[in-house]
Design a protein around this nucleic acid. Sequence first.
DNA 1: AGTTTGAGTGTACGTTCGTACACCGAAAAC
DNA 2: GTTTTCGGTGTACGAACGTACACTCAAACT
Lengths: 206, 206
Amino acid sequence: MTETRGERKERTRRAILDAALALCEESSLVALSLRQVAKEVGIVPTAFYRHFDSIEALGLALVDESFVSLRAMLLDVRRSNPGFDHTIDSSIGILVEHVHRQRAHFMFIARERAAGPAQVREAINREIKLFEHELATDLARLPGTAAWSSDDLRILSGLIVTAMVATAEAILRSPGRPDVEKQIVEDARVQLRMVLVGALNWRSRS
Amino acid sequence: MTETRGERKERTRRAILDAALALCEESSLVALSLRQVAKEVGIVPTAFYRHFDSIEALGLALVDESFVSLRAMLLDVRRSNPGFDHTIDSSIGILVEHVHRQRAHFMFIARERAAGPAQVREAINREIKLFEHELATDLARLPGTAAWSSDDLRILSGLIVTAMVATAEAILRSPGRPDVEKQIVEDARVQLRMVLVGALNWRSRS
DNA sequence: AGTTTGAGTGTACGTTCGTACACCGAAAAC
DNA sequence: GTTTTCGGTGTACGAACGTACACTCAAACT
């Protein structure tokens, strides 16, 4: 006996999560059947219930798991902060790297945010709001934003998050086309720079 | 006899499109069955094939239809252009109005863009790219962008479209909460103003 | 050593699915 | 007036669906 009971259960749970992530890649959670997942994992359909009450519950677990990845990304961004205005290039580089490494998670979030079961959609949008809030507090530490209202900071970080989500989605939409991706990334850089120029000149005219 | 054969067919076709739009509102095209649609319309399942080859083909028709609405919106924006920098307020007002009047279409696009069948996703993203391009040519006519490269114009309009799509999605996510919606709209205004400030100061520093 | 627990099994049900096929009946074409 | 066209019908099928229920059997507990 090399495996305890809990370990074995956890292993099956993981297999279910992975199978679901892979299977719904070309459609959506709402089109995913419990039987497909069970077949992919290699268990009998009813065994699914030993781990999740429903596909929706499975979805919520996947949301949690996915946002662990995303928070790791934000940590990377914070940690790598070079203090320069290479910040933009560095941050986008980290985004791109995480999108590639956690491709399935990013695709899951992008899809289910708009099309998942209601609870899943809400969970995702709640997490993204949190994300925006965290970015806002990071931005507040940057020089030049001292005079900004907290509303303006929130709105700016909303804009940045929106642009970065769109960039991630665009990258996911162009798999195996390095030239296209290069263009997307370059565009994202310019967009962030434009926003930054707007930010630096903000308040000076209003 | 008050109806020709073609008219009757068109009426059924419309009923199918409307039923599909309504039925997939809480899930997605990929989870929509031909039989549900047929039942909703009041025809027998096999009669569906008289109008569409598949649910996917139906989806493509819905994309076409939805983007007719969206182009109407762009026309409204162009027509109403007050020449002032009330342009932002005016444009956002038009966006909000269209989102409310074509709620189902906007929701369809937002959902299926990320989660629909492959062809539907591609069709939607192609149309959005077109949208960005049209906006770019509009922007080129604005004062102050004379010295801009066509790349920068394209990138700027991409940023604006992204922000407006996100705004529309946020509005759709907050139905029947006028206060929340007011905040979303106000934030969108500020975001556009920030971007505008960035645009006006662009090139002057790079 | 004996008992309990619980992940996974196997069968069995009623429902819904897409679609094949033969058919109908009135508008359209001749 | 006869024939053709074609939107819609009705039946019928095998497959997949969620889930209820009774089961096994090894690890975990006592």
